[in-house]
């Protein structure tokens, strides 16, 4: 057994192969939550439609956060909604990923100067992928989801699951809920 487990710079060989298998499973079954805050949600729905069929990659929508892997911030986020979105994020089961879709979710966009709009989803959530556009076309959203797939491919999942490390990008805002 010791001969099989070759210690390399990036962990053992056997664990690496197991990780590859598990990551293959995870990346091809990326279920997203059917949740939109504004007009980008129209493009989000379109992504599941015939022209850019997200189901080809095994991405289907789930209605409940417990069963979703990806939270797509589709649209303008107001301060009143921010705490609700954070609650949805907390309800999702690990491992989970966040995509900021469109200008509003990236930076506040057109409504950045408004008193009611959060200036970017990354101020209160650990965003993995930013998709530009107002709104982004469904092809862009597919590309964003494929970037998440690439991110998953590189993750040492077994190590991450055992050590249970916190996401370093999480802003860790206390009292938002």
């Amino acid at each position: 057994m010791d001969a099989m487990v070759e210690q390399g710079p990036e962990g053992s060989f056997v664990l690496g192969k197991v990780d590859d298998l598990l990551n293959l499973a995870r990346k091809n079954s990326l279920w997203y939550m059917l949740f939109g805050t504004a007009c980008c949600a129209i493009e989000l729905m379109q992504t599941g439609g015939p022209r850019s069929d997200a189901d080809r990659f095994g991405m289907v929508f789930r209605a409940t956060p417990r069963q979703s892997d990806t939270l797509i911030l589709a649209g303008t986020i107001t301060y009143k909604m921010a705490s609700r979105i954070r609650l949805l994020y907390e309800q999702m089961a690990e491992p989970k990923y966040v995509i900021a879709m469109g200008s509003c979710a990236n930076t506040g966009g057109l409504f950045q100067e408004s008193y009611a709009v959060v200036n970017g989803g990354d101020l209160f959530l650990p965003v993995d992928v930013y998709i530009p556009g107002c709104p982004p076309r469904s092809e862009s959203l597919i590309e964003g989801l494929m970037l998440i797939q690439q991110k998953i491919e590189k993750e040492p999942w077994l190590k991450k699951a055992w050590t249970n490390t916190k996401n370093p990008k999480d802003p860790q805002i206390e009292g938002l809920l």
Binding site: Y79, T107, G108, A116, N119, L123, F124, I173, G175, L176
Partner: peptide, 23 residues
């Protein structure tokens, strides 16, 4: 929320529950 935004002398608060209001 603190203040009433449509008053002409309204100043937005720096953070809301820890979220910065400016980028």
């Amino acid at each position: 929320w603190v203040g009433h935004p449509l008053r002409k002398d309204y100043k937005q608060q720096e953070t809301y529950r820890g979220i910065p209001t400016t980028r």
